[in-house]
Design a protein around this nucleic acid. Structure first.
Lengths: 155, 155
DNA sequence: TCCTTATTAAGAATGGTTACTATTTAAGTA
DNA sequence: TACTTAAATAGTAACCATTCTTAATAAGGA
């Protein structure tokens, strides 16, 4: 990790501290470490992956703490769940508006950032159902890596 | 249910028969009944709901059969899962392209049909990740019913 | 009808997630 | 800095949606 990344993550953790205080939540080392793991990863990790990573620095951390903390971070809008049809929840700390390409073979999640002129508009009749909080687009398919593997098998 | 609906559902079941034969799958009464339940419902039922409904007609049906059959119907593209962040999978037999408004309070799923001039286009850079199979849009929010209940509580 | 084999019922097992309880700890206060 | 106390944690057990296992059944082709 380079210096600008280190700076960026420090900023994020300071923001986490602020948000915790604002909501009357304590700033615990577990919370910081768990948030760091999600924020530093670009692979949209599941709870198990976060748990394993945190264990390296905090061997006594419990599974329950990881799940509980991921839920708190979600409440703070610091992270959110990636919609998927898999048994495990996946988490994302990137707050920039974006969407996901999910590979149906290997379950990898790729970020899709729209061009400026492609901004998603709320479908005309969506608001008649209620108050819209969040729009989420998933694109499911087979990723290039898996397509290549399929080709290699055929030959 | 009126006559045209009865006709429509018969057509769908005939299509199910055809698809089963095509794929070398047997046409069992359980498959027909389970499919009927999903196809006749507009509430995007979960497996438990389907199980309870089917039990009225087939008291001996097992939970396992329901799950296995829902998975087979998915393989046949007769039904599909609604993306959600809830512990239970929800199913939909409506093959017309549409999307969903999911209430974060009561978990109800509402169908959203786009106007013709609002057709969803694949984001420009999505295809660079691989072969796109399916695009899915969820809109999460609070439905009118729950908004009304909130208002009533406040007064 | 018979035969082959997929499907079924019933219940046990699995696995991701959540709950429980005793203990520890963050952070406000003197 | 020590005290106080509510909140958070570790460790473990429980939960619950879903899937697996086994023996029995039944569909559909020959």
């Amino acid at each position: 990790m380079n210096d600008s990344n280190k700076e960026a993550i420090e900023d994020k953790i300071n923001y986490l501290r602020t948000m915790c205080k604002l909501k009357g939540m304590r700033v615990t080392p577990q919370r910081i470490e768990i948030y760091k793991q999600v924020a530093n990863s670009c692979e949209h990790p599941d709870a198990e992956t976060v748990y394993e990573a945190v264990k390296h620095k905090m061997p006594n951390v419990s599974v329950d703490t990881v799940y509980r903390t991921l839920a708190s971070l979600e409440d703070l809008d610091m992270i959110f769940r990636v919609d998927n049809q898999l048994p495990r929840a996946r988490f994302d700390a990137d707050k920039r508006p974006h969407n996901h390409f999910i590979c149906i073979k290997c379950n990898e999640v790729y970020d899709i950032f729209f061009d400026k002129d492609e901004e998603i508009k709320i479908p005309g009749n969506a608001e008649k159902f209620g108050e819209v909080k969040d729009i989420n687009i998933q694109i499911r398919g087979i990723c290039n890596k898996c397509l290549q593997e399929q080709k290699n098998k055929q030959n």
